[in-house]
Write a protein that binds this DNA or RNA. Structure first.
Length: 599
RNA sequence: GCGCCCUUAGCUCAGUUGGAUAGAGCAACAGCCUUCUAAGCUGUGGGUCAUUGGUUCGAAUCCAAUAGGGCGCGCCA
């Protein structure tokens, strides 16, 4: 039996419908919903069945609704049924059915809401995938949080989730990183060479001039001494031919940068299961195999592309190149797979990488990207569709830009001005939990304003605080009850057996209803790939709890702890403990730690 | 020029995949609170869901066009 009351009663509704209308197609039945009502006056739940079936049955919705009402009245646990509006059927449950959610929550704990809806389908969620050329900056933050929460959410909804990070360690960027690290190495060795002279040697000039590469230069010197350099006539270290050091330094620098990124991710509470290397995928021949497969399917050709409209690149020249027919799969133009120097484009390697994910067993791939990669979505989906025939869908979640505000004014990201640019700075300023929660308070395809003052404010309108405060209040009540020692066992196991008949007020039942919605919320959010819904659910749950708490302000008899009334108090404590449990369950999906008390 | 995303109350945003009278917080207004549970509480007002057309029993939600904002547009990743 499902722990989700909506799912249970949906089955009741379907059983009644099948009896009433035996000929209705299964796919029509699949669209029958049983949803919480928005207005409590409409009962606890409502179904659209009559509206949905009217056409198939060639009857008026109101007639079907009337039949449903008559049949549903006999179902166990239903206190009242009524047809309403254009053909809805509203159901009011016996209070005991709703209250029964409390022992369920207390019994399974934070696992409450765990669903089998995903049926163990293997989902690969790839997120962050920052270039290993430096520490993470705030631009990476939203994707990291959204991807991590989405992966947690889908795991809770019953998918078999792999969290993956793609390391772009095969392109020109990491070559430039190697040159920059090599320059720091030469400096550590005491070179007298001028930076401009070195910059002239490096392809594309000297990039990545931040201080963060100094430790890498020092580590290179500690490990290799002066073996990677040449010694000039005056004994000063000079650059050696890059063939003698580039590969070594590149691997060394990438390892260091990846270590820094992993530290940043750990500070954010993000942990990936798999780190995949672009260079490794390439070396194993996966990319070549994918390109071969495209060639055999006659999806590659040599051709010349039109120049892009709008701004023309300065160095534009017509050139024939190897193109993939992505237009056959919904893209706007065909896309190149080879650069002029004969090496693969990033796109070509990314095709290989996605095929590697498929080879490792992914049945659904979800990539979390920044908005600046929006123009890349169609071609990647086209390639995956061409190679898997649609058997393994690729979904892309784009995270729009985050604007950081202080005092309502945009914060300019500038190293020179001393305003922060790194993810670590952001975490240090407002804290990991505030960063994670706040990043989930908007749907990811909308731009977001991140107000540094608001996210740490202890006010009603800060959902981070509001939710944490609700949990702290729950814990505070339970601590007080334990200290008084007059209410028996007040842990979850002890409270699971509490008699609950005394929970009857609107505020109490509203909270019970909200707790009953949690499993449904998990499934809906996971199927929609919308982890932000969890944040909003928790804010509403916290609101219900605070409302209940506030009743006790004016009327002492409505407080949770009632000296002398052990039975009634235990019922209320069960409600409080269940609320705390669901808040923890939700925060766990978001990767936020619950607090025991506010300070 | 083309593609993708966004536009909901004065402000910041939700809206359970097409359902009933479109919601929450802030701000505004009215009242309460000298802390046994006020890092506040109760209530009120506030809307052409950017605009126009379409799809149907029903549209903020789906489709098309228009306006405004954002992101992007061979050989970067």
């Amino acid at each position: 039996m499902s722990e989700c009351v909506f799912q249970r009663y949906r089955h009741h509704v379907l059983a009644v419908v099948r009896e009433l209308l035996p000929d209705v197609a299964e796919e029509t039945l699949a669209r029958v919903e049983l949803t919480p009502t928005r207005d409590p006056a409409h009962g606890d739940m409502a179904t659209n069945a009559a509206l949905l079936l009217a056409k198939a049955a060639r009857r008026k919705p109101a007639d079907i609704a009337a039949d449903l009402v008559a049949a549903l009245q006999k179902v166990e646990g239903i206190a009242a049924v009524a047809a309403a509006g254009p053909g809805f059927v509203n159901i009011t449950l016996q209070p005991g059915v709703l209250r029964a959610v409390l022992p369920v929550v207390l019994g399974v704990g934070e696992a409450y809401g765990q669903s089998q809806a995903g049926r163990g389908v293997r989902v690969n969620v790839e997120y962050v995938s920052a270039n290993p050329t430096g520490p993470m900056h705030v631009g990476h933050c939203r994707g990291a949080v959204v991807g991590d929460a989405l992966a947690n959410l889908m795991a809770k909804a019953g998918f078999d989730v792999t969290k993956e990070f793609y390391i772009n360690d095969a392109g020109n960027q990491v070559k430039a990183l190697a040159w920059a690290a090599y320059w720091r190495y030469l400096q550590v060795l005491g070179t007298t060479m001028a930076q401009d002279d070195f910059s002239a040697l490096a392809p594309g000039g000297l990039q990545y001039q931040g201080d963060y590469l100094i430790p890498v230069g020092e580590a290179l010197a500690a490990e290799f001494g002066n073996k990677l350099a040449e010694v000039g006539v005056d004994g000063t270290p000079l650059p050696a031919p890059d063939a003698t050091w580039l590969q070594t330094v590149r691997g060394f620098a990438v390892t260091h940068m990846l270590g820094a990124i992993k530290e940043d991710l750990a500070a954010l509470g993000v942990h990936h299961d798999v780190f995949s290397s672009e260079a490794d995928v390439l070396a194993r021949g996966v990319t070549d195999a994918a390109i071969d497969q495209l060639a055999k399917a006659d999806l590659l050709y040599n051709g010349v592309l039109e120049p892009p409209k709008g701004k023309l690149p300065d160095d534009w020249e017509e050139r024939e190149q190897l193109l993939f027919r992505s237009t056959s799969f919904g893209d706007d133009v065909d896309r190149p797979l080879r650069k002029s120097d004969g090496t693969n484009t990033y796109f070509a390697n990314d095709i290989g990488y996605h095929m590697d994910k498929v080879a490792r067993g992914a049945q659904v791939m979800i990539d979390v990207w920044g908005a600046d990669h929006g123009g890349y979505v169609k071609r990647m989906k086209a390639a995956v569709k061409a190679l898997t025939g649609g058997a393994v869908p690729l979904e892309v979640l784009l995270c729009q830009i985050v604007h950081i505000l202080r005092d309502g004014q945009p914060v300019k990201m500038s190293k020179r001005a001393g305003t922060f640019v790194t993810l670590r700075d952001l975490i240090d300023e407002v804290g990991r939990d505030a960063v994670r929660f706040t990043m989930l308070t908007r749907k990811s395809d909308a731009q977001m304003e991140f107000d540094l003052d608001l996210v740490v404010a202890q006010q009603r309108d800060n959902p981070v605080f509001y939710v944490q405060y609700a949990h702290a209040r729950c814990r505070s009540v339970l601590r007080s009850a334990a200290e008084e020692g007059a209410y028996g066992a007040v842990d979850n196991a002890g409270l699971a057996s509490a008699a609950l008949d005394s929970l009857t007020s609107d505020a109490e039942m509203a909270l019970v209803r909200r707790l009953a919605e949690w499993p449904r919320m998990v499934e809906a959010a996971a199927l929609a790939r919308e982890p932000h819904r969890i944040a909003f659910y928790l804010a509403e749950l916290a609101g219900d709890f605070h409302a209940l708490w506030n009743r006790g302000r004016d009327d002492a008899s409505l407080r949770f702890l009632q000296t002398g009334a052990v039975e009634a108090t235990r019922a209320r404590l069960a409600l409080v403990a269940a609320t705390a449990t669901v808040i923890r369950s939700g925060l766990a999906v978001m990767g936020v730690d619950p607090v025991e008390e506010m300070r």
